[in-house]
Each structure stands twice: as C-alpha cells, then as structure tokens.
Amino acid sequence: MIETQSVSKRFGSLLAVDQLSFSVSPGEVLGFLGPNGAGKSTTMKMITGFIAPSEGRILVYGHDVENDPIQCKRQIGYLPEGAPSYGEMNPLAFLEFIADLRGLQGTIRRQRLDYVIDRLALGSVLKQSIDTLSKGFKRRVGLAQAVLHDPRVLILDEPTDGLDPNQKHEVRDLIRDMSSDKIIVISTHILEEVEAVCNRAMIISRGKLLADDTPANLAAQSPGHNTVHLVMGNSSQAAELATELEQLDPPPRVERLEDGLSLKAIPPAGREILPQLQQVLVNKGWAPSQLFVERGKLDDVFRSITTGGRP
C-alpha cells in the first residue's frame, strides 16, 4: 500500500505538485497521465525517496519515506525517466551490482538474474558496454534493474519510451504478468498503453489531481461515447429511422449525413442507445448495411480535462 497525504513540492516559486492525496493497493496498475511538466515525474521521485516533499508525507507499506528511507527503498523497484545507468559497465556487471546492493544472494540471486535477462531478452548484449547499446536495450536494462529483486512496488517512469512496437508489447505483457500482487505505478504519454495495462488512471495537470478512475470510465466521459453509426439500404428508410429514433427514451441527437443513407445517433452523456435502436430495426424489419458503435477516446477526455474544460 502506498499512501500520499497532501503532498506538495515547491521548486523556488514553482509549485510542481499541489496537495496530492491518493493511495494505491496491491493489484492496482496505476497510470499517471498528464502533459509534460504536470508533476508526474516529481511525484514518482518523491515516492521513491529521491526528493523530499515540501509538505505532506508518503507512506510505503507503513514506512515513512522521509523517516525510514532504506526500508521504503527496499520495497520499491524504480525505473527513472530516461533509464539512466552506468554506461561504461556491461549489462551483466550492472545487474550484478544492483543484485548485490539489493542484498540478493546464492541461488535466488542466480535465478533472478537469469529470469530478468531472459524475460527482457538481454542475453545477446550481456558483455557489451551499456553506452554502445540501442535506446531499446538501454530501456530494457533499466527495467531489468527495476524488477530484479521482485519488489512489492514498481515505479516506472515512461517504461516503453524508445521501444519498438514488439518490445512495447513484451513490456506490457511483463507488467500485466507482475500486476496481480504488486503495486505498479507507470507514467506515460501513450494513452493506448494506459488502456492496455492499467486498471486505474489518474490525470494530473499543474501538480493537481484532475481525474481518478478506470481507463474505461474515463473514456466513457468522451462526448462521442456510445454513438451509433448506421448506413441504411435507401434514403427513405434512413429518413423514417431518423424520425423513429427521436421518439426513443432517452432521445438521442440524430444527425443525417449528406449521402442520405448514413446517420449518427448520439445518446445523452453516459447513456446507451444501441438496445433501443436495435428494437426499432427488428420491429421494422430493416437491415442496415453497416452498423457500429463508437467507443469513447481517452485522448478526447485527456485533452478536454487538461486544457481546462470538462468533456
């Protein structure tokens, strides 16, 4: 369990994090979303004990990050932004160094090293200096370092930045595999990633928490959510259907497109229209040539929340 209690961080006159309070439980994969400079990284740096909050306090499994930093750091695996490491070392020596500092010994040390090297596909570059590796490999070395000691808490700052689509997929699988009993906090700009791996999303802007919900619920706040798009066989059917739809409860906003055949039924926010609409189609014996239901886009919600307006 991680708890932040009214945490603020000030850099000079800049308030980077403003009275942030939340708690995360095991099994949760929390995605931090926000524009650049929103305070995501700063919050992560405070949870991992790299910088101290100006106000408030942070508890990691009951240990205060400021008063009991070593106990907290033992529980946490952390991938800092940009995955820094020691460039002159090779991945094997680097991971062995981390294993030693993490207090891993004997067979467990061997097993964990083998596991992360295999899982992050580092076998081919173990003896190459990290400086000479590609961005993707550097990121994976950083991830390997973070998960090496099988921590209860994983804090990953942009874990898939710089990876190709296959590698992104691998990393997301890794995160999902570990998520059942761990606390995982990731920050990302890639909204599809949040939908792919997170079961909770927090939108932060200017250091303030603006939204905290499941990615699906957040996406549902999008104005286009549950809109039904139809293409009818002929224009008279389309016209008749439009009038029928306006009688429904709740009444959708119906828009006809210029081709005369296509129409959109937009339900009131947070409502569905598909079942009622299907009933109409069945009653009339009409078969639309195309029908699809639009899902809300996290992008739209993210944009409208972080630029000030509600969706």
């Binding site: 790299f50 033992r74 946490i76 952390y78 981390i98 500092l101």
Partner: peptide, 10 residues
C-alpha cells in the same frame, strides 16, 4: 542521471 538510480537504491 544515474545519481537518481543510486540514491533510490537501499
């Protein structure tokens, strides 16, 4: 930036 890694190790 490796100082961030070092300072968040136990």
């Amino acid at each position: 930036g490796s100082v961030e890694l070092l300072m968040t190790l136990p």
